[in-house]
Design a protein around this nucleic acid. Structure first.
Length: 229
DNA sequence: GCGACAG
DNA sequence: ATCTTGTCGC
């Protein structure tokens, strides 16, 4: 497991963090379709925290997009680099996630984040931020609607409804299991919303959450347990 | 002004 | 995110 230092010049205040978002948001690419589902690699990233020891552990798990078999996995540990502030989650997770991604022995392909991309109060969530910093295609798949609204999609798996900020569609509430609460998909970088939803469905043959985030979640929790004094 | 709010 | 037992079901 690689060890991470908080980058020099990392934002220390909410004001600085918002200024960074404003600057990086200009570099988001929204006019690409992204890789087709079922081909190449798909990588899940997630983090776990131990606030008592000021520790954060990130995991990156690369799956073969066709078989959903694990191709590679890495973890990284670091100090918590920012408090949890809704809207500024990326500043808490990104240094450690970047280290885990950089430690991979193969290209990640599409990166699936636990959280939002465009569906963000300032239209620059974790998935957008990670995409701009790495240049990789990214999407966000979140478990909760955050501040957004939606109408319940029809009961069968595969149905979706717009995720709305007022009248603006910022993502989609996508049903991945029949009659089970939907997940909330949004675009990060270099992927269309339709394609992001298609990937999410390809990654959910058995469970509500994508295999990528399930694998990354269990790996970073296990790594945190093993790294905790 | 206050509360709610991805993880 | 994290704190937390048992329980119902495939």
């Amino acid at each position: 497991m690689t060890t991470v230092r908080i980058p020099a010049g990392w934002p220390a205040t909410e004001e600085q963090a918002r200024a960074v978002q404003d600057e990086l948001r200009e570099r988001v690419v929204l006019d690409e379709q992204g890789p087709p589902p079922g081909t190449g690699h798909v990588t899940g990233v997630d983090v776990a925290y131990d606030d008592d020891h000021d520790l954060v552990v990130a995991a990156a798990v690369v799956l073969d997009a066709a078989s959903l078999e694990v191709v590679a996995e890495t973890t990284a540990v670091g100090r918590i680099s920012f408090p949890y502030v809704p809207g500024l989650l990326a500043f808490r997770e990104i240094p450690t996630v970047l280290a885990a991604l950089e430690a991979l022995p193969c290209p990640p392909g599409l990166v699936v984040c636990d959280g939002y991309g465009l569906a963000h109060p300032r239209r620059f969530g974790l998935a957008s931020h990670l995409g701009v910093l790495t240049g990789l295609p990214t999407i966000g798949v979140a478990k909760n609607p955050f501040t957004f609204t939606y109408d319940d999609p029809a009961t069968p798996r595969g149905n979706a409804a717009p995720l709305l900020a007022d009248a603006e569609e910022v993502g989609r509430a996508l049903r991945t299991r029949d009659a089970v609460k939907p997940v909330f998909v949004s675009v990060g970088h270099r992927v269309s919303l339709d394609n992001a939803c298609a990937h999410t469905l390809a990654l959910t043959p058995d469970y509500r959450l994508p295999e990528t985030t399930r694998r990354a979640d269990s790996l970073c929790r296990r790594a945190l347990r093993e790294a905790t004094p």
